[in-house]
Amino acid sequence: MAVTQAPFHAGEFDRADPVPRSVQPRIRIRDVTLSYGALQIIGGISVDIAPGETISVIGPSGCGKTTLLRMLAGLAKPTSGSVELDGSVLAGPNRSVAIVFQDYGKALLPWRTAAGNVSLALEARGCPARERPEIIRDLLDKIGLGRHADKYPSEMSGGMQQRLQIARCLAQEPKVLLMDEPFGALDAMTRQALQDEVLSLVAMTGATMVFVTHDLEEAIYLGDRIVCLQPNPGRVGRMVDVRLARPRDQLMTREDPEFLRLRRELYDLIKDDHQ
């Protein structure tokens, strides 16, 4: 069975989990709720994420995707429940959990060049100054910014700035990569190129990824599983397994009957939420 039909209970998702239970989850989200005052934003989410797994998160606007991601990054504290990283409760931001913010314009340091922005992550983890230039060059090359190391963010396009943010996150050498609609503002071609870059980087580093997106196809293309959130309060409506071969390919994968089936299924699901 490719799709878990029973929502709402964490235990039931575990059965559909492609990774054996004996492996300790990288991230364990346990009955997490979050309220602002009397208003409950997140209403009890439980998900286990295995090491190396990529989870896509979709859901209507305002359902709490960003809020969930911020809790995983330690930037927001759950009102009840907990987020565990490798078995211990996440008390706050942690260097091994990197986050790519949606608003790249605000997350980069405008007074530092591309190289300088990546360097910030290295400086933070105490990497000796001698070793930085080489690491920076490697990372910028990897993400396709090798020729733009000396440009300031204001001299770069949106796609380049978002790449730079990803490069800075990679410099953190994180175990977990959180992405909040990172490609939302980009054109289709740039978007697909970056999707492939991110997939190959994740494959190379073995990082665990949680990827928030509005785009159903992007969610399928990137994910091992897809968490569909429902709003008011935000909770897991459905968990969908993506059984598509890796490495994925923009043409082949998107023409795969399974891809089309999943797209249809998710589309129906989201449509219901909007009614």
Partner: peptide, 26 residues
């Protein structure tokens, strides 16, 4: 920019580094 304080927290910059590398330049 409040986002930069979050960047600093996620990267694990010390308080002094945050002042010197983020707040002062901005």
């Amino acid at each position: 920019e409040p986002r930069l304080y979050e960047v600093s927290a996620v990267l694990g910059l010390t308080r002094l580094q945050t002042i010197w590398k983020l707040a002062l330049p901005s």
